[in-house]
């Protein structure tokens, strides 16, 4: 029980590390996912191909492999960044593929005629998407996007294996110090729970605010 009180700073650092990874990677994933979803429904063939390729590659690559590719691969091309940034890149890009698909399925729930009416009024593709289609798609994508971000929070544990400070990684230190492994993990689990429940609560609130059908 005193694992937590004795090592509060280690837990705190790990918790903050996971929180940071989750927040930054989520923002990146949402931005890229949004962009890729627009590409996938765009009237320009090359954009559609790019979006499809992005999703296919990232969704079907094991996340650990992606971490290796980013952390070991990018420096070879002269791109040297802190490991934490690499971890955010890997997590964000990986998750963007799932966000993209959630958004796209939401877009498909909006009747075709909505976009056609928007375009027939002279809106550009981007205007039709952002003013008419996405606001209506938004409702139905809130739950799946929430689930995807919860998965991201948990996936961030992989970053620990690449010496990024995060929650799961704290068990190594504590284990070496001889603390009870069960309690060590219980408190780690509680840390994850705080983050994932916060995401759930946020998306519940969003759903109650926006999810009502008119």
């Amino acid at each position: 029980m005193n694992v937590l009180t004795d090592n509060f700073s280690a837990y705190g650092a790990g918790f903050l590390g996971t929180l940071e990874l989750t927040v930054y990677a989520s923002l990146l994933a949402l931005a890229l996912g949004f962009l890729m979803a627009s590409f996938r429904v765009a009237p320009v063939g090359s954009l559609r191909i790019f979006g499809t390729a992005w999703v296919t590659v990232l969704r079907n690559t094991p996340l650990t492999l992606l971490f290796f590719a980013v952390l070991l691969g990018l420096p070879r091309f002269g791109l040297v960044l802190p490991f934490k940034v690499f971890a955010v890149l890997a997590l964000g890009c990986y998750t963007s593929a799932f966000i993209c698909e959630a958004l796209r399925s939401g877009i498909n729930t909006v009747p075709r005629g909505q976009g056609e009416a928007a375009r027939s009024l002279g809106m550009t593709f981007g205007q039709a998407l952002s003013l008419v289609v996405l606001p209506q798609a938004f409702r139905s994508v809130i739950p799946p996007v929430g689930s995807t971000l919860i998965a991201l929070a948990k996936n961030s544990a992989i970053a620990g294996a690449f010496s990024v400070t995060e929650l799961l990684g704290t068990y190594k230190t504590l284990n070496e110090l001889g603390y009870n492994i069960v309690w060590t993990f219980v408190w780690i689990a509680v840390g994850y729970l705080i983050i994932t429940l916060a995401i759930s609560a946020l998306f519940h609130a969003l759903e109650r605010r926006w999810g009502v059908a008119r």
């Binding site: 005629g113 928007a118 027939s120 009024l121 002279g122 205007q127 606001p135």
Partner: peptide, 30 residues
Amino acid sequence: LARLRAEVGMVFQSFNLFAHRTVLQNVSLA
């Protein structure tokens, strides 16, 4: 093309009013 479409109004069988906007906003948006 978008500019040109604005010059040609279209009315559909299924109305296609923007479901998330009020009547006034539907007419004002574009």
